Amino acid sequence: MSTILVTGGTGTLGRLVTERLRAGGHEVRVLSRHAQPYAVDLRAGGPGLDAAVAGVDTIVHCASAPRGDEQAAAHLVAAARKAGVPHLLYISIVGVDAVPLGYYRSKLAVEKLVGESGLGWTIVRATQFHDLVVRLLDGLSKVPVLLLPAGVSDQPVEVSEVADRLVELAVGAPAGRVEDMGGPEVRTFPSLARAYLRATGKRRPLVGVRLAGKAYRGMRAGGHLTPEHAVGKGTFEEYLARRF
């Protein structure tokens, strides 16, 4: 069996990837800022990162943050090159090249770093996880009226299914940019919000709000959706039933 390093291995996705890889008999190293013995801040790099990547067969790069992703990826790529890591697998987001959000631009820049790293690499993009939609709606529902971006849909996907896909890719050969992974349904935000309100027992009127900016226009145009790759099985209602 192989030795695999999972960055962000204590996070929502990375934890599931780690569990599945270990269940499959692989030796897994978990890298995060607080996970011993590989407690490393990728944004800073350093000798701890060199020790984490030494001798691994594959790196699954799940670590991400609102700021510093490019710097973190540059450090990771440099350490992987130095160690001669055969395979670097990166999880990105559908729409990073179509929706000009700052975070998406950063993810696209990381894709470029990985693709130009000189390493064997794989990149897969997924749509947003169910829990992110719920966190967004939790925040929006704190006021008496639930304000939603008018004309925007989403295609949430079950995080455990994305973890399964990453495990499949991690134990395989480098494959370059593979097909996107989207949730089973493209849903309007009012539809998602009504399902959330039913599940939580909250009552809120829904009001669509037109926003300004290129990012909003990109989302209205569906740049963050991949209906042609609606391969996910778990629905938003199924997720809500488990959570609430």
Rank of each mutant, 00 (worst) to 15 (best):
G11E: 10
G118F: 11
L132E: 04
K107L: 11
V28M: 06
V134Q: 12
F129I: 06
S92K: 00
R33A: 09
A126C: 12
G68F: 00
Y239F: 15
S106L: 03
V167W: 01
V96C: 13
Y38V: 03
R217G: 09
L49T: 05
L240G: 04
V207A: 13
E179L: 08
H224S: 11
E19A: 14
A126T: 13
L136E: 09
H61F: 04
A193L: 07
V40T: 08
K202I: 03
P149T: 06
V40D: 10
E19Y: 03
K214P: 02
A126W: 01
V110T: 12
E70P: 05
G48M: 05
C62A: 15
E161Q: 14
R203Y: 02
S153L: 04
F129N: 04
S2L: 10
G45Y: 09
D180E: 15
V99A: 04
A109N: 12
G232R: 01
F129A: 11
G183L: 04
G151W: 11
L89K: 00
A54E: 13
E237K: 00
G201E: 02
L146E: 08
V209H: 04
P227V: 11
G223M: 02
K107T: 02
T200M: 10
V30M: 10
A51W: 02
H224Q: 14
L211N: 14
R22F: 06
K82Y: 00
E158R: 13
A150P: 00
E158T: 02
V94E: 09
